[in-house]
C-alpha cells in the first residue's frame, strides 16, 4: 500500500464557480426585469428640471400617467384618451376599497415642453373622481 506524503499532495485552492455563476445569473435576471418594467411604466420624456421634494424614501405610485410633448397620454406603454384614462383610474380606486379616492396616489410624468392644457385636463378628470393629490415627476438636475 502506498501512502501519499505531505509533499506529494498538491495544495491547491479550489474556487467554487457554480454558485458564483448562479448569483451572477440571478443578478442579470434582476437587472433585466427591472429595466424592462421601468421601460413599460416610464415613457422617454424630458421631465421638468426641478429638485422635487427630496424625500429620503419616496412612496411608489401605483398608476403612472405619462404625458408626452404632443399631449398623448401613455400608461404602461399604451396610449389612452381621457375616457380610457378615467376607466383606468376608476379601476385603480376599486383596487383600494379601504382607502378613499382622496388618498389615492398617482404619479404624473409630464414632458416639460408639453402645453399645460393636457395636464390640466388630466387634473380636472382626477378632481371629478375626488382624487385628492397627485405626484408630479421631476428630473433632478445633475
Amino acid at each position: 500500500m502506498r501512502f501519499v506524503t505531505a509533499r506529494e499532495r498538491k495544495r491547491t485552492l479550489d474556487i467554487e464557480v457554480t454558485p458564483m455563476i448562479d448569483v451572477v445569473f440571478l443578478l442579470i435576471i434582476f437587472f433585466m426585469t427591472t429595466a424592462q418594467f421601468a421601460r413599460m411604466t416610464r415613457a422617454e420624456l424630458a421631465l421638468p428640471l426641478e429638485l422635487g421634494e427630496q424625500e429620503a424614501a419616496p412612496q411608489e405610485a401605483g398608476l403612472v400617467i405619462n404625458i408626452t410633448r404632443e399631449g398623448e397620454i401613455i400608461v404602461s406603454d399604451q396610449s389612452f384618451d381621457l375616457a380610457g384614462l378615467e376607466q383606468l383610474v376608476r379601476e385603480e380606486i376599486q383596487l383600494h376599497p379601504d382607502s378613499p379616492p382622496q388618498q389615492l396616489k398617482l404619479l404624473i410624468r409630464a414632458d416639460r415642453n408639453a402645453e399645460s392644457a393636457r395636464l390640466n385636463e388630466v387634473v380636472r378628470l382626477l378632481q371629478s373622481l375626488d382624487v385628492g393629490s397627485a405626484r408630479l415627476a421631476t428630473e433632478v438636475p445633475r
Binding site: G52, G132, T138, E139
Partner: peptide, 19 residues
C-alpha cells in the same frame, strides 16, 4: 444602464377636488 438612468424626484401638490 441602470445607474445611468436619469434620477427622478417628485412634487406632491394637492388637487382641489369638488368636495
Amino acid at each position: 444602464t441602470t445607474v445611468l438612468a436619469k434620477p427622478e424626484d417628485r412634487l406632491s401638490p394637492t388637487l382641489h377636488t369638488q368636495r
